[in-house]
Design a protein around this nucleic acid. Structure first.
Length: 489
RNA sequence: CGGGGUGUGGCGCAGUCCGGUUAGCGCACCUGUUUUGGGAACAGGGGGCCGCAGGUUCGAAUCCUGCCACCCCGACCA
């Protein structure tokens, strides 16, 4: 009898950790801040990767791979960029080990010091733009639309599985364009791709917006973001897309000849999502019974559990059903391990968030039905075998949609418009924390003051924020539109 | 990186204050039997450098020093 998961109401952080561990998504490792992603967790990530990769290809991008190591000097070529990342870089200083002459095991060989130290990439703009200098000569070489799937390292002091780890997996797109307009268009296009992925595949509603100067990527002119709201009322930055202007082109001297044969600096973008999305997925849908995975990302969408005794008859029926489901593209598995009892399997499958469970026993065979249990609502029903495949295919769509609608409703309930700082504080400290839509005068001072007083930050200025006259909560200065505040992960 | 906490079979814990035979319990695991429609029952069995490294002592899971990891809170960041 395994113990239950810590309820969210009791300890949200512990609940999150319990889900990650009990659903076998990931473990801590022997290396500080680095996680082991386990097969089931990686299976979900693989499905995310596959879908995103398809979407990148559809929008004209190609994959490539750049080195893990970056010469230290590259990082300092773009002033803001180095400011942003210098504090959290792993540095390679030597290239050889030796046996300790004093018998203390293996030690760094002091004679193998690198002339120029190497940084383990925290992101790849510098090495990529250093390469692009060689790839780009003419406007005919543009646009250059490249993505890479990679791991990066940011030496985080406080880590949480998936949400913030010292090493994480991600994709980073790096594009080069002839004009600012084209680059901005690309930045917005990829923000749309991310939003579509989040909403249609992860069933996680997001707000598309752009960042204030304080929250902007180091080296970007503008950072666009998709922001999601987690069940505890904290916001999660789920993906970013940056318009880099000519900052990196100038730093790395990447120029092209335009149609008039005049040299110009190239315009750039970069965009990325990471294994952090796994954290968002967990905290958007899961409940006190365990993980809930939307059908489109579930490695296993349907599990069939036999209620044993006349084993052969059940096996045959299950096999038939599996074949029929597979033929319709459903990912189905048959859990016929007779060492475990059905009740145990029910609980395990709920823990892992498998969207649909089918229970098949002699009683069902006799009546020509099967028990269908959906993970999202925990409803169970007895459904005729006839037409069962259509029923399940439709049910998977329904679950996908229900998860999104449920999360959307939650976000709407937790989004509050306020017009005074007193209201703001009441919401952020009350029982309904979440997004707060409020006026802001556009100054860093007001933004930082709110952060200091409430810990909430401006998550984004929504792309579609309508023009509306108002006044800043802190300064009383005029404001033209509302922005979204929240406490954030 | 600062404050607090925790490290004992795979997992969860007791034992540590006050040092003293073979380090204990629940779950999991192995064997067998009976079971099987919401985490099975009984019987028998295996498994431990007590986080790591030093030190004190006749004797250390227990006391001392250093280190490592994880969790919570804070500052910083995706």
């Amino acid at each position: 009898m395994a113990k239950a998961i810590t309820p969210r109401s009791e300890d949200y952080s512990q609940w999150y950790l319990d889900i990650v561990k009990r659903a076998q998504l990931a473990d801590n490792s022997a290396v500080r801040g680095c996680m082991v992603i386990k097969p089931y967790g990686f299976g979900i990530w693989e499905r995310m990767q596959r879908q995103l990769d398809d979407m990148f290809k559809e929008t004209g991008h190609v994959n490539a791979y750049f080195p893990l190591f970056i010469p230290k000097s590259f990082l300092s070529k773009e002033a803001e960029h180095v400011d942003g990342f210098a504090k959290e870089c792993a540095v390679v200083t030597h290239h050889r080990l030796m046996n300790d002459p004093n018998g203390g095991g293996v030690v760094v060989d002091p004679s193998a010091k690198l002339e120029e130290e190497l940084i383990v990439r925290p992101t790849s703009e510098t090495i990529i733009w250093n390469t692009y200098r060689d790839w780009i000569n003419s406007y005919r070489d543009l646009p250059l639309l490249v993505n890479q799937w990679a791991n990066v390292v940011r030496w985080e002091l406080r880590t949480r599985l998936f949400l913030r780890t010292a090493e994480f997996l991600w994709q980073e797109g790096h594009t080069a364009h002839a004009t600012a307009e084209e680059a901005v268009e690309e930045t917005l296009r990829m923000q749309d791709v991310y939003a579509k992925f989040a909403e249609e595949y992860m069933a996680m509603p997001v707000v598309k917006g752009f960042k204030t100067a304080n929250e902007r990527f180091a080296g970007a002119v503008d950072t666009y973001t998709i922001e999601a709201l987690m069940q505890d009322g904290k916001a999660l930055q789920a993906g970013t897309s940056h318009f880099l202007g000519q900052n990196f082109a100038k730093a790395f001297d990447v120029k092209f000849s335009n149609k008039e044969n005049r040299e110009e600096y190239v315009w750039a973008t970069s965009w990325g999502v990471s294994t952090r999305l796994m954290g968002g997925l967990i905290m958007t849908h899961s409940d006190d019974e365990g993980l809930i995975v939307p059908p489109k990302l579930a490695p296993i969408q349907v599990v069939i559990i036999p209620i044993p005794k006349p084993k052969e008859a059940l096996d045959a029926k299950a096999k038939e059903l599996m074949d029929a489901l597979k033929a319709r593209g459903v990912r189905v598995s048959y859990d016929n391990d007779d060492q475990k009892r059905p009740g145990f399997k029910f609980a395990e499958n709920e823990l892992k968030g498998i969207p649909v469970r089918l229970g098949l026993g002699q009683r069902d065979l006799d009546k020509g039905v099967i028990e269908v249990a959906r993970r999202d609502t925990k409803e169970k029903s007895s459904v005729p075998m006839e037409g069962i495949v259509d029923h399940i295919v439709n049910l998977l769509d329904e679950i996908q949609d229900n998860l999104f609608q449920r999360a959307l409703k939650f976000r709407e309930e937790k989004t509050t418009r306020v017009d005074t700082f007193e209201e703001f504080q009441k919401v952020i400290e009350g029982d309904k924390p979440g997004f707060i839509s409020a006026h802001w005068d556009g100054t860093s001072e007001s933004e930082l003051k709110i952060k200091e007083l409430t810990k909430a930050t401006i998550r984004c200025i929504p792309n579609d924020a309508p023009e509306e006259d108002g006044v800043d909560l802190i300064s009383g200065q005029p404001s033209k539109r509302r922005v979204l505040f929240a406490k954030a992960y």
